[in-house]
Amino acid sequence: MSYLALANEGVFPITKDKDGQSQSELPATGFSFPGTIQGEGKLAGVPSLFIRLSGCNLRCIWSMPDGSFCRCDTPYASFAPERTFSMAIDDVVALVQQNLGAMKHVVITGGEPFLQHKALADLCLELKKIPQLHLSVETNGTLFSREVAQHIDLFSISPKLSNSNPTDEKITFYGLKPSGPLSYHAQRRKNLPVLQKFIDFSRENNKDFQLKFVIGNHNDYLEINKEYLSELKNWNADDILLMPLGATMEELKKTSKMVLEMAIQNGWRYAPRVHIELFGSIAGV
């Protein structure tokens, strides 16, 4: 039996266990029923269940326009995976089935899901046996697996710009040790051949994808054009999404208008973070 390493909330938001028994506590949404919405990207607003995998091969720490720092908004799945636990794939699928209700959308996120590509392929195979289920995966676009990709309907790819590099100043600010992904993030954050594989696979197999860039600087559009879009083929303008940097409403206020202007001027999509607007900066929503 295959197992997955899950992070923090694992499968969320749910109200029933794998046997269909009601849980004693409400999910983080505060609702008495399972589910939330996809808060980002092309499918923002779609009712969804999430599966959060643990572990990431990158360590993003961004600079805000005012010079302050903002690191990955799910550090418990990357920087400090303190609540990682293993779960059999059959149990993950059972949790989804018991809590799916009228929803038809499951999002696999992380961390970086493709780190667990073998078990992930098994999970996706089983999930796609659920009639009419739409399956999205959120990835940083540095790893690709055809075994996983064949089961995915939407690839939500978030390539990391140079602003995400964990510089010495950022590492010192957070009291971190410059080891592991912190030491090689800058060299591995951009993998153009892998990004092209995602695009080509999507075009050849009637899949959808989005390149969702986190924006924190006024000139980030220059890097997107020069370092990514000019080197990639077979993308359309509506596949390019700009998402304002920030894990709280206060941080989003610093970047949202700038990102909106950048999206309009370049003919790309603006991607709000609806879940933060609705629930604030909490996990499990």
Results as ranks from 00 to 15, higher is better:
116 Q>R: 07
222 L>K: 15
152 I>F: 05
214 V>E: 01
149 A>G: 12
280 G>S: 02
253 K>G: 07
92 V>D: 01
89 I>T: 07
277 E>Y: 12
186 A>M: 09
144 F>H: 04
102 A>V: 12
156 S>E: 07
233 K>N: 12
274 V>F: 11
179 S>W: 09
36 T>N: 10
134 H>E: 12
45 G>D: 12
56 C>E: 06
183 S>Y: 01
183 S>Q: 12
283 A>P: 00
275 H>D: 13
256 S>F: 11
147 E>N: 13
6 L>Y: 04
113 P>Y: 01
233 K>F: 13
192 L>G: 06
104 K>M: 08
33 F>D: 06
275 H>E: 07
99 N>G: 08
90 D>T: 11
221 Y>H: 15
149 A>W: 02
128 K>W: 06
245 L>A: 06
277 E>K: 14
282 I>Q: 11
71 R>L: 10
56 C>V: 11
33 F>C: 11
77 A>G: 15
217 N>W: 11
157 I>R: 00
144 F>W: 04
89 I>A: 00
199 I>P: 03
94 A>Y: 04
230 S>Y: 10
163 N>W: 05
188 R>Y: 07
10 G>E: 05
284 G>L: 11
12 F>R: 00
263 A>C: 12
227 E>H: 08
82 E>A: 10
235 W>P: 00
128 K>R: 14
10 G>K: 06
45 G>L: 05
131 P>K: 08
141 G>N: 04
